[in-house]
Design a binder for these strands. Sequence first.
DNA 1: GATGAAAAATCTGTGAC
DNA 2: GTCACAGATTTTTCATC
Lengths: 152, 152
Amino acid sequence: MQITDADRRILRQMMAEPGLSVADLAERAGVTAATCWRRIERLREAGVLRGEHAVINWHALGWEVEVSLRFTLDKTDPRAFDEFTVAAREVPEVIEIQSFLGSTDMRLQIIARDMAHYQQIYRKRILTLPHIAELDALMLVSTIKSSAELAL
Amino acid sequence: MQITDADRRILRQMMAEPGLSVADLAERAGVTAATCWRRIERLREAGVLRGEHAVINWHALGWEVEVSLRFTLDKTDPRAFDEFTVAAREVPEVIEIQSFLGSTDMRLQIIARDMAHYQQIYRKRILTLPHIAELDALMLVSTIKSSAELAL
DNA sequence: GATGAAAAATCTGTGAC
DNA sequence: GTCACAGATTTTTCATC
């Protein structure tokens, strides 16, 4: 798919001010609402726009503990990656799963109500994940920036 | 702010099916559209709901390289954290900044068009960030899960 | 102080140009 | 790509609990 300057302006605006209506987006991107809508539709069909994501402030909801866990897997078993991933997806407190090339294989981000809750998840759901060779945990203090304002 | 059962149902539904209209959300959460709208507004004002973000497929836009960088800072200087954070925010290719308690102090996530572009960002914008003591990089292969479906 | 019903304002999605 | 428009949706108002 060919991405025009107008597409780029729309995408940039979506990143800069998420949640804007199509009409407002159109105005800021310098196109009419109908055009903007059709472009968004095209971007969706082309797989550039994957959908929407509600951004929730877990802290305000009383989920105080956020942890980033890095795993090295036991690569002697070729099924390690798949089985680890499938098992990790099933833990509801896991809010992000990333896979890497390098010494670390996977990263999970986890939220919990408090330390006691985290301990419980850690022992019952994390340490029981399959094929873990090594693991190290970092307590998250804050997420400062979580978006992009790129010159596409 | 007091969070009711209806609020929880609305939030859970928003996470499960982002982008739903207020009317549909209301139906699924078992409240009227007006009530649902008012509750969402309250959650927004209370800072529980930070908004809805469009999920962009960088790969489809031709941004092929994604990297996670972990930093240990030089803590002999008390301004290290602030100065590092301020400088990191200004790099447009940095799409996430997290700060931790533990051996690692910061994590940045970066996107680049290709390896050559990444090398350039790495040398000119990352290695020049202030107060870096140690740093290690991981090439991201994929992000598999990036949401939560929690029993709030 | 919170709710639902209904009206008013606004936006979306489509067709014609 | 623009314009016009019907239908849908959001947001306000108001009477009620």
